[in-house]
Structure formats: C-alpha cells, structure tokens
Design a protein around this nucleic acid. Sequence first.
DNA 1: ACGGGCATGTAAGCGGTTACATGATTCG
DNA 2: CGAATCATGTAACCGCTTACATGCCCGT
Lengths: 181, 181
Amino acid sequence: MSLRYALLGMLANESSSGYDLNRRFQEALYAIWPASHPQIYSELKKLDADALVTFSKEGSRGRKVYTITPKGLKSVQSWLAHSDVDHALRSDSLLRSYFFWIMEPATLQKHLAAEKAFFESRVAQYEQFAAAKDRGDFGSSPQMKSIRITLEAGIRLYKSLAGWAEWASKEIEHPTSSNEQ
Amino acid sequence: MSLRYALLGMLANESSSGYDLNRRFQEALYAIWPASHPQIYSELKKLDADALVTFSKEGSRGRKVYTITPKGLKSVQSWLAHSDVDHALRSDSLLRSYFFWIMEPATLQKHLAAEKAFFESRVAQYEQFAAAKDRGDFGSSPQMKSIRITLEAGIRLYKSLAGWAEWASKEIEHPTSSNEQ
DNA sequence: ACGGGCATGTAAGCGGTTACATGATTCG
DNA sequence: CGAATCATGTAACCGCTTACATGCCCGT
C-alpha cells in the first residue's frame, strides 16, 4: 500500500512521468522503499483508475505526464496524518546474526568485517550528500528539508549498525559475558 | 528465500513442530523477519519435499516434529557463508519522513513524539531482555550468545531512531540550516 | 542507418497476508 | 460438557520481482 502514497507524495511535489518517477525512486527512495518499474507503472494505472492522479499523453515517445488530483492530495495527507505507522522490519543482516553460532569463527569474522565496511560506506555516502545539502547546494525548500531529515535517519541508522558490527566482532573474539568460565 | 533458512536455523538448534516453530518465530524473530503461520507450514512442506528436513508424525493432536537433515544443515551453512547479504530496507517510518513537508506542523510534531515513544519502548524492552541474559538467566550457550548479539543490534538501532525522532522534532521547530534567512 | 537510451508496458511466478476451516485435546 | 487452546492446514488475493516485449527518438 505504501508505494501508492510514495508516488502520490512525489507527484505532490511536482508532476512527472512514470519514467521520471521511476528514476527518482531509484535515486532517492530505493534505499528505504525498493520498487521496480513494472510496479510503478502498474500502480500509476491504479491511481488513475481511482482518480487520484490524471495524465496527459503529450511528450515525445509516448511520454505520459502524471499530475496529482485534489482527491489524491487529500489521500496522501490522510495517510500521513491518520494511518498507523507500520514498524515492521525485515533485515537479512539481523536475521543472519541470530544464526552466528552456526558459522565457523573465521568465516564469521570475515562476514562482520564486510558488514561493517558496507554500513560505513553507506554512512559516508549519506554524509556527503547531507554536507552538500547543509552547504545549501540544493536550496532550502520544505521538500529539501524533509529529505535532509530522512538522510539524517539513514546516517544514524547505518552508523549504529557499523558500530554494532564492530562490537560483535570484538565480543566474539573475547567474550565479556558475566557468566563466562 | 530467507524464511527457509530461518526455519532451518531454528531446527539446527532443536527439532520441533510447526506449531512451536511458529510460536518461537513470533516471539523471537518476528521483529526482524515477520512470518505468518500459513507461510511457515507451507515452507516446511517445501523443505520436506527438498529433503532438507524430515518429520515424524507422533505427538498428540497430529503434531508433526520436524528434524533437520545433514543436507539441510549444509544448506543453512552455505547460506550463511556464501550467499550475499540482502541489505534492502523497507521502512514506513523513513518513507513518511521524506514527505514531512506535506504535513501540518502540529500533526508532524505529534507524529514525531509518538515515533520517539515507540522506539524508546522497543529499546526498553530489548534492554530488559539483554540485562536478563547478561545476568545469566538463560545460560551461555553459543545460541544464546548469538541472540544477545542480535538483541544488541536491535537496541542500537532503535536507540538511534529514537534520537533521530527527537532531533527531527527540534530541527523542525527551530531550523539550523546554514542557508537559512 | 543503426545503436543506444528513452518510455511504456505484459506475463509468469513467488512470497506473503488474511480469512476461513477443521479436528483433537485439555481444563474447569 | 463446553470452552479454550492446540495443531495443522486451504484458498483467495495482493505486492512485488524477473524476464520478456515493443516502439520511439536522438546522436554519430
């Protein structure tokens, strides 16, 4: 259900084509809400059927430009204001950690080092973007401020996971468990 | 695909019935990998068809006890050691934050307060469990140590999100953006 | 002229949820 | 005996992915 609102939200910012929405999705939202292009196109079809968006077939190569309708805007606002947040998580990284006891120590250490490196690279990537934003490279529209807030979540999240991977690595090497020995 | 390995991992620890697997899943893994009982039962069927588990219909009320096979054990180990970690994330919380600019300030502040409270309650819940573990309430098997590590990830993750929600709330009230005014 | 990116789709299939269904057993 | 819980499933449906398909336009 969330993809529908993600698309409406992007269209609330500016009208655009399915192709552009997809491109922007891959750049901006894929990290927190993955979606493939067939899904985006078919969801746009449904949004049109529900009169939450309209489109005008105008541009070159059959390009369709979608625009949000007043009903569509109300729909996103209502989602944001009234619907319950889904706090479900689905993390392959954490799931695997539950089964660390099955892994050989050497393999596990390699695994944790790779995880740490991955999380740190995400942090670096987001921090770079955040710094550019804070310098004012992208203006200071309300939209940009929201993006900055989302970015901050990513930075904090991946920083904490990088720290966790490092902690786990040490914890496994020399356990500090109170009931040890 | 991950559910399959989650089940195999649990069965590597101890043989149990679909019912028990489901119950333990809801308690322990639901927070990081949600699964409903029909999914678990049908996955067990497939695992049996693939000879990764066997079952003996023995217990009361048609209870089936599943046991992992050597092939099954190899399968989990191979998953843990050789398959790429899927770092995809799908967070309703973060997705919404991308669209904060659409929300009315008062609603948004309420939203962030509720989010912070939720994240903090998760932290408290996990910390309580972690403390009990560190006291040695559950022994110190390798399995238990893995759980402790997973738990640590949850604590750090939700702590960072709670901090983020607080930061965002303040950031919105009095922006500190460098290119302000 | 043609190769590559633009732009939009369809189809098959899988993973996952929700609702429904059923019988067995234990407990008060 | 009846209610609750144990225990296992089926069916319908939806979200989502992967692979396939098609035509258009731009640059070289």
